[in-house]
Design a binder for these strands. Structure first.
Length: 769
DNA sequence: GAGCACTGC
């Protein structure tokens, strides 16, 4: 059994296996199997005899960590691609010319000098400096990965960025994407044995580090967009700080927007700083003289004023969420129609933009601004009303006017109640600057801030709090343990989270048996960390074979890790609810999700038009197919670790009971009891919080005990996605947590006491027989 | 009888 495990493991880590092989060969092994000539992965270097006998790559003259910008430029200028020995294409020289015009290009030597002199380097550059595409290539020409067999990694917070930048750099280097330059993101690894430069998401690098604590595959790690301070970036920074002490051969570059450069330097042992100017146009800032009472109303008014009185150029308005955005779109459209009737204004096309919008509709923001209404009339313009998505993820060229009311929805975490929620909050100065910058990408622009200058200076915080200070850290703590971080208290995070948040996470993991009483990782914890899931979901999934329903729990887990599959358009709510009722299971929402998924799979396998079917049934095809993707990934992980995939026969009475019980193996801490019969109010177990069941539930008759997937704090306290359970299961499945003596006096304690006595009596009777 | 800001594994 141990052997079969090992065999499976090596196939999964196939990548690194090949790398170590390559490394040996590059160092010149002796026998036939390690001789480069016999290595098919290096075949490209020996394609023709001329290369072997006569051709000298310019790189042969390079001394690692002693190269110069001129050397590299000459190599780039040569007819043959020094990395492939193939002739450079025409397109290559075209791109090369534009690369040399980038601001960063002038500082290549300065960069190399600094890179040679230090292990860690902080690099700041504004948008348009070219740092994301150029710096990794500068490193490539100095690291010479073909000699060392080690890779250069460049991390990005988002998948699309990793993919598109990798493609761009592959073009710039005149190589095929996935060969010398590749990318690695969840669900897609486009790297190969020849890959030297790898773009990846920060989360992906963190995953890799779990199995390679030294990050030994890499000679250089470049953290890009570090100022965004994602959870993964923060953990990587602290981790790299430790690794840098152990691995003096590892070089680290932290790239960020200009703000806060000092903080990064100080954090990284006073690392030297290189700053590169950006290439943007000036943006004039306007403030309101008095604070605005209703920012939505003020936003609409400002957009209309710009349209009526400013020269042509598109408008970008930042609002906080879907509802607000749709509302503003309606109001602006109405007003513009009036304006066009009354005065000589051009047409205005309004586009909403938020994350849950289908991609096709998101794409429409790139449509051209509308034509004048009549020949020679005033030019049309477009107005995009967006969430924060337009602040980081999406850049739209042609924006000249930005309207910034100064708010965004932000995740906050309350460790006392263990609830993450979204709250409309004032943005930070850094955010405000980022927003304003969106107006100056193609020509000088204007930014209208709907707050006073005094408010900007005095009331806005400098930086948005990093994610690590605003999240439940159960997952993070588990990851850190798996990453080999022994001492969490002294783990040197740039912004250490509140001790209470840390304690909560440790406590939660201890109840889940992922950490033992000494805070050490258990086998279950180690296994749970293999899954890209929250610990409770991972534990639920790992435990599911004990309940004879791991196939079903695999589906439910996947459905719970994607956005809601239920579609409920405003103009067809009733129809949507009727359709959802078709899948309803009387025992709750988890089972209803499963029913919908089974129907979806049945239709798909029956060869029906699955998109049409989803549309008719008000289900999101996008989210269901992404759940399917997640399911495949989780299934592979289960198979790798010999977690059985089993089902209770559908005809069996206990089919659904087993599933409901299995839910509790991970979610026993998320249980609520009804206050009293005829009441709609519930109380959460141990936290004693008053909650209601979210109105989206399919269950009509209220149950006494429910397990819930999430706690949402909106107009009221709601628990969402709930399923009916029996209290005796709690005592049986999670006896440690449901140690009745540990409960505070109250209804829940008395109820549990009654139940445990009943169980004891029943057992005594059985024993007496 | 309500509503998912945005990422990521």
């Amino acid at each position: 059994m141990a052997d079969s495990k090992r065999a499976k493991r090596s196939s999964i880590d196939g990548d690194s296996f090949q790398d170590s092989k390559r490394l040996k060969m590059a160092n010149g092994g002796g026998n036939a199997t390690t001789d480069p000539k016999y290595n098919k992965y290096l075949a490209h270097q020996y394609e023709d005899d001329q290369n072997q006998n006569g051709f000298q790559s310019p790189l042969d003259q390079f001394q690692r960590h002693q190269t110069t910008a001129i050397q590299a430029s000459n190599a780039e200028d040569s007819d043959l691609n020094p990395w492939t020995n193939k002739p450079h294409s025409q397109r290559y020289f075209g791109i090369l010319k534009s690369r040399r015009d980038l601001p960063v290009s002038k500082q290549r030597q300065e960069f190399l000098d600094m890179y040679h002199s230090t292990q860690i380097l902080v690099f700041v550059g504004e948008t348009g400096s070219g740092k994301t595409t150029q710096v990794p290539q500068y490193v490539l020409y100095d690291e010479l990965p073909h000699q060392t067999g080690k890779l250069i990694a460049c991390t990005q917070p988002r998948r699309v960025a990793a993919m598109s930048v990798a493609q761009r750099v592959a073009n710039e280097l005149d190589v095929e994407l996935g060969e010398e330059v590749g990318y690695s993101i969840r669900f897609e690894n486009r790297t190969g044995p020849k890959t030297m430069l790898k773009y990846m998401t920060d989360g992906q690098l963190l995953r890799e580090a779990m199995h390679d604590h030294e990050m030994s595959r890499y000679s250089t790690i470049i953290l890009d967009e570090a100022h965004e301070r994602t959870l993964a970036t923060d953990i990587l920074m602290a981790l790299l700080k430790q690794i840098a002490e152990r691995r003096k051969d590892l070089k680290i570059i932290v790239m960020s927007a200009t703000l806060d450069a000092q903080k990064f330097q100080t954090y990284f042992f006073n690392a030297p700083l290189l700053a590169v100017p950006g290439r943007t146009f000036p943006v004039e800032i306007f403030y309101t003289p008095e604070p605005e009472r209703d920012y939505l109303e003020a936003s609409v008014r400002t957009v209309l004023q710009i349209h009526a009185s400013e020269p042509d150029g598109d408008i970008l308005l930042f609002l906080t969420g879907e509802e607000e955005i749709e509302d503003a779109c309606r109001r602006i459209n109405l007003e513009v129609d009036d304006m066009i009737r009354e005065s000589e204004v051009g047409p205005l096309k309004v586009y909403p933009l938020y994350g849950t919008l289908p991609p096709a509709q998101q794409q429409r923001i790139f449509d051209k601004a509308p034509e004048p209404l009549k020949k020679g009339g005033r030019p049309g313009r477009k107005c995009i009303i967006a969430t924060n998505i337009a602040e980081t993820s999406l850049t739209i060229d042609g924006i000249v006017y930005v309207v910034d009311p100064g708010f965004s929805k932000q995740k906050i975490y309350n460790p006392r109640t263990r609830v993450e929620s979204l709250l409309v909050s004032p943005i930070s100065k850094a955010s405000a600057q980022q927003r304003a910058g969106r107006a100056g990408r193609t020509r000088p622009g204007k930014c209208f801030r709907l707050y006073t200058e005094k408010a900007f200076k005095k009331e806005l915080i400098e930086q948005t709090y990093p994610e690590i200070l605003r999240s439940n850290l159960a997952n993070t703590v588990l990851e850190l343990k798996k990453l080999g971080v022994e001492d969490l208290v002294h783990f040197d995070l740039m912004d250490p989270p509140a001790p209470e948040t840390m304690m909560r996470a440790l406590e939660e993991l201890n109840y889940l048996a992922c950490l033992d009483d000494d805070g050490e990782l258990t086998n279950l914890g180690s296994l749970a960390s293999e899954f890209p899931l929250d610990p409770s979901l991972a534990v639920m999934l790992i435990s599911s074979p004990e309940f004879y329903c791991s196939n079903e729990m695999l589906s439910i887990t996947s459905l719970l890790s994607v956005p809601q599959i239920w579609v409920r358009p405003n103009n067809a709510r009733k129809r949507a609810d009727e359709m959802k009722a078709l899948f309803a299971h009387p025992d709750g929402d988890h089972l209803t999700l499963l029913n919908a998924y089974h129907a979806y799979k049945g239709t798909e396998q029956g060869g029906g038009d699955i998109k049409q079917w989803c549309h008719e049934h008000f289900l999101s095809f996008r989210h269901l197919s992404s759940a399917d993707n997640v399911r495949d990934q989780l299934k592979r992980i289960m198979e790798t670790h010999d977690i059985e995939l089993v089902s209770t026969p559908f005809q069996d009475k206990s089919y659904y009971i087993n599933i409901r019980r299995a839910l509790l193996a991970g979610f026993f801490m998320q249980v609520a009891m009804r206050e009293s019969s005829n009441s709609k109010v519930y109380k959460t177990v141990k936290d004693d919080q008053m909650v209601m069941i979210h109105p989206s539930t399919v269950v009509s008759s209220p149950y006494d005990w429910v397990v819930y997937n999430e706690f949402v704090l909106t107009t009221k306290n709601y628990v969402r996605t709930v399923t009916n359970i029996r209290p005796e299961w709690l005592l049986e499945i999670a006896p440690v947590y449901y140690d009745v003596d540990s409960f505070e006096k109250g209804e829940i304690k008395s109820a549990l006491t009654r139940i445990s006595e009943k169980i004891r009596r029943r057992q005594a009777m059985k024993g007496g027989q």
